[in-house]
Every structure is written in C-alpha cells, then in structure tokens.
Write a protein that binds this DNA or RNA. Structure first.
Length: 296
DNA sequence: CACCACCCCTGGACGC
DNA sequence: TGCGTCCAGGGGTGGT
C-alpha cells in the first residue's frame, strides 16, 4: 500500500532522527532483499530463478561508517543518502517499513526485520517487510541514483499539473486505459491503486477510458486531481489500511477521506449511486457509475 | 512496440 | 477452535 503519500510521510518522520547521524554498524539479515552494485540489474528479478549468485555482503556496503544527509524521495522510492554520496534506495513494496527506535528502545513488531542500521547516538533504523515485495538497492554515488530515478515520470507531489498533464498527453495515441497509465511509474511517479481510483473519481473519469479518448481538457483535469489527492493525503500523513506506519510507528489518516477505494457496493458520497468494482489493469478498481460514465 | 497474464510473498478475512 | 481458500497489490518478466 505505500504509495507516494505514505513514503513522503515516512521520509519526513525520519528526517529528524537520521539526518547528520553516522552509521556505526549495519547488518543485513537477509541477503536476498538487497541488490548490490554489479548484481544483474532488474531489481526484483533477484527473486526468480536462476538465482543470482549470493554475493558476500560487507557491512560497508550498507553505509557503515558513513553519515546520513536528509533522505530524499521520488515517487514511491525513498533514498538514504550519505554525505559521501552513496545511497540506499528503499522500495517498500506492499508491506515494507522503515522503523526508527530511540536509544535503548525496541522496534515493534520485531519480526521480519531484514536490515538494521545502528546510529552513533545509540538509536536504530530497521527495514522490515513481511511479504518481501520490497527491497534495498545499493547505489555507489549520486549519479547512479539520478540515473535510476530518470526512468520515473514526473513526481505526483512536486511536479505541477502541467507537467503531469504533459506526461499523459504524450500517450494520447494509445488505447491504454487511463488507470493503467496512472499506475505506470514511468508516466507519473507515485500513484498506486488507491490514489488512482480516488483521483479518477474526483476527476469524473471512468478508469477504463483510453488515453486516446481523453482529450487535453480531461487530461489536465486528471493531472490536477492527482496532485490534489496526493497533496491532501501527504498532509494527512498517508493512508493506513493495515500495515502502513511511519518511522515512529504512527499511522496516517488519509483513509478517512477515501471516496471510492474499498467502498464497492456502498453509495457514492456525491450522487448516491452504488459504487461498482471490477478489474482494470490487473487491479481491483472501484468507480461511481453516475459520476464516472463509461467511455463510448 | 504495446499491452497483458502471471508470478513473487505473507497474513488477515471468511466459510465450513 | 482449526483448517482450507481466497485475496490484497508493486512491479518485473515473458508471451502474444
């Protein structure tokens, strides 16, 4: 579930705890959740056969002895960056968490912890991920991070509506569904299943509408609602449906503002019609048949 | 090239 | 209470 708002809320919660701190010890408890420089690129392919040969992991590869600067984010990815320019990109996947524990404190829950960083004030930062859809990518320098993030579309929080609209309009010849495009991180970075449905509802656009049938006007309206929905969710600390919590373990409250996600069969808050659900782009999708008319 | 079905994984919900 | 089954979904891979 962590989409852009959850990752941004997490990032902000970590800033005061780790910025300027030095890693005194780093431990990788599960080697297969990390991708090292030199590993066959492709990220999640590490989980498939043939298994990449396990590499000897040195603590230094997890930024031991290095000082953190402020963590940065692009889309749903957060990067722990050091003064020297090395970075660890953390992808939370479905159930990934970064949790911080004060000196002498415990991280709870303490299971499924795959990596631990002990900081110079005695506090700890851990990466836990029960489902292991997430992972860590170790990057040698800032340019490697930039190259990785160059593959992402405009960030749904920091880009303006015009940039997001332009990204959608670049595909105006495609019959691809608008929802599929919003979920594509190369088109817009940071939107996942929840906020795609929420944005399309607010824009009054059916999720199966092809990009070719959108037109500049509606593309621009969608871009604006994506920004609005994401911005509001960040202000609410993200959505906590089950697993999400920030670095301090605090949940978000943006789920209270959801108008369609998780509400199939319930009445539309705007028109009272019964919300419908189905599969669009392999994802459970909820929409209002009254407010979001079917494309022709 | 564009798009889609499938797969990775665990835990919670639900039915019997 | 316990067990089985289904489902959640980000995103890479391979097939069409």
């Amino acid at each position: 579930m962590p989409e852009l708002p959850e990752v941004e809320a997490l990032r902000r919660s970590l800033v005061p705890h780790i910025t300027g701190r030095t890693v005194v010890r780093a431990t990788l408890h599960r080697r297969d959740i990390a991708v090292m420089p030199g590993d066959p690129e492709g990220g999640f392919s590490r989980q498939r056969s043939p298994k990449p040969r396990p590499k000897r992991m040195r603590a230094a590869d997890l930024l031991a002895e290095q000082a953190f600067v402020e963590p940065v984010r692009r889309g749903k990815q957060i990067a722990l960056v050091t003064k020297a320019g090395q970075a660890i990109v953390v992808h939370l996947g479905m159930t990934g968490q970064l949790r911080w524990a004060a000196p002498g404190g415990r991280v709870t829950p303490g299971d499924h912890v795959h990596a631990t960083w002990r900081l110079d004030d005695g506090s700890r930062l851990v990466f836990r991920d029960p489902r292991r859809f997430g992972g860590l990518w170790l990057l040698p320098d800032r340019s490697a991070l930039d190259a990785r993030w160059a593959e992402l579309g405009p960030d749904a929080l920091t880009a303006n509506a015009g940039q997001i609209a332009a990204a959608l309009c670049a595909w105006s010849g495609s019959r691809r569904a608008i929802k599929a495009a919003l979920l594509d991180q190369g088109v817009v970075a940071g939107v996942g299943n929840i906020y795609a449905d929420e944005a399309l509802f607010r824009a009054g656009v059916h999720p199966e509408t092809p990009l070719s049938g959108l037109g500049g006007r509606r593309a621009r309206r969608i871009a604006q609602t994506v920004r609005d929905v994401i911005t509001a969710a960040v202000a609410a600390g993200g959505s906590t449906l089950r697993d999400y919590a920030d670095g301090d373990g605090n949940p978000g409250s943006a789920q209270r503002s959801h108008k369609v996600y998780g509400r199939a069969g319930e009445p539309c808050t705007a028109c009272g019609a019964t919300l419908e659900s189905g599969q669009v782009a392999q994802r459970t999708t909820v929409w209002c048949p009254g407010c979001q008319p079917e494309p022709i």
